[in-house]
Structure formats: structure tokens, C-alpha cells
């Protein structure tokens, strides 16, 4: 039985997911050095650079359009995701923690931005990596909580808009459902209004909004 057939509870489609993935894209795709990420992630484990129980680094660079280099933590996975032929950082909350869908999404966004910022800082002096801040991809593999249905897509948009307002303010954004019809619910978000943000600015905005 596929998740598309997951039943609704009352009138609601969505419930509280454990797993939430957010991807931000690398700006200069051609210049991105995948092999370097193995060393970077190993060093991040040595330095406890990200919060959580960091377990290991896994090299999937041989897999076309695959997870690239994977940093495995008990609570989350961070990968130099190459899905769709576009490289980016995808941070996926996997375990522990709790909260509403909005809270989990916000946590995942903050985490991926912090990881991306760490890489920007690490590479500032040598072949710097920069991340695009006007688009993100949200992926919900927790199919019982967030089924990959049209109804779920409609219901989740206001949730995401509410969360993203904490990062972008009232700038117009739009969503497109992407990925395979039988895949997890996946949304591509683009900022359509004017504005440029650094990773720091997005994070600071979110902190201010959170009070």
C-alpha cells in the first residue's frame, strides 16, 4: 500500500511528521568540489561543528544524481544532494525532537541554513561555496503524517508560508509540487518578490521573528 492511500483523520490530511527535509542549492554548480566535502564533513565531526550525535561520513558520489556525500547524525542526515542534477545541501530531520509540522519545518530550515553557513565560512578563502537563498525544496518522506496527495499539498502551503514569513518577511513566494507522482510530497519554493538575503540575514530574521 502506497502512502497516497493513507487515510485522512477527520477533515485533516496532515499530522505531525518526524521526517522533514529542506534543501538549499549551491550557486555555482560547476565549481562545487564534491570530493572536498568528505574531508569537510569528517572535520565537522572532529570539531562538533553541528549539533547532534554525529556518527559518520558516507561517500555516495559514485551514484548519479544521488545523495553525494552524506553526513550521518543520529537525529538527522545532511547530504550534498544531487537529485535532479542540481547540487545543494539537504538537511533531513530523522529522529528525536517533536513539535507541530510548522515547528519541525522551521527547525529543518534553521539547521540547513546553519550547515550551509558553516560551509560558506569554511571555504571563504579557497574556492568559496555560496548558497542561493531565493529558493528551497521541502521534502516530506513521513508519508503517514504528510501523504503525497493533492489535498496535502493544498493544506501544507499555508503552513509553509507561515513558517517562511519568519525568514523572508512578507515577500511573495510561490510553491510548485515537484518530483515523481509516487514519490514523497515535495515542494519547490521560490521567492518571487524582490530581495536578496545572505544566509546570516535569513537566520537573524528567523531569530528576531521568534523573539
Amino acid at each position: 500500500m502506497s502512502a497516497q492511500a493513507a487515510p485522512e483523520v477527520g477533515s485533516r490530511v496532515l499530522s505531525e511528521p518526524q521526517r522533514v527535509g529542506v534543501k538549499v542549492f549551491v550557486e555555482d554548480q560547476e565549481a562545487f568540489d564534491r570530493a572536498r566535502m568528505i574531508e569537510v564533513f569528517h572535520r565537522w565531526i572532529q570539531e562538533d561543528r553541528l549539533s547532534g550525535t554525529l556518527v559518520d561520513v558516507h561517500d555516495y558520489t559514485h551514484v548519479p544524481e544521488g545523495p553525494g556525500v552524506l553526513l550521518v547524525a543520529h537525529e538527522w542526515h545532511l547530504r550534498t544532494d544531487e537529485a535532479g542534477g542540481r547540487i545543494g545541501f539537504e538537511y533531513e530531520l530523522k529522529r528525536e525532537g517533536s513539535g507541530t509540522l510548522a515547528e519541525r519545518v522551521r527547525e529543518a530550515i534553521v539547521s540547513v541554513l546553519e550547515a550551509a553557513l558553516a560551509l560558506e565560512q569554511d571555504t571563504a578563502e579557497d574556492n568559496p561555496v555560496r548558497f542561493a537563498t531565493r529558493e528551497m525544496v521541502f521534502r516530506f518522506t513521513d508519508r503517514l503524517a504528510v501523504p503525497a496527495t493533492d489535498a496535502a499539498f493544498e493544506e501544507i502551503i499555508p503552513e509553509l508560508e507561515s513558517v517562511l514569513a519568519g525568514f523572508y518577511g512578507e515577500i511573495p513566494i510561490e510553491f510548485e509540487r515537484v518530483g515523481h507522482a509516487r514519490g514523497p510530497l515535495t515542494l519547490h519554493m521560490k521567492v518571487v518578490g524582490d530581495g536578496e538575503w545572505t544566509l546570516d540575514e535569513l537566520l537573524n530574521g528567523a531569530r528576531s521573528a521568534a523573539g
Partner: peptide, 23 residues
């Protein structure tokens, strides 16, 4: 739907119950 951005509480869904007689 939601109230002030929070989902109304409900019993978490379980695959065990959801799959039912398919197994």
C-alpha cells in the same frame, strides 16, 4: 485544519493500523 499554526491534536497514525488486512 490548524489553529494558530498548530495542528489540532490527534492520535498519531500508525502503519500497523493503517495497513490492516493488506498484510
Amino acid at each position: 485544519m490548524t489553529t494558530n499554526g498548530r495542528l489540532e491534536t490527534s492520535e498519531p497514525r500508525q502503519w500497523k493500523g493503517t495497513l490492516g488486512s493488506l498484510l
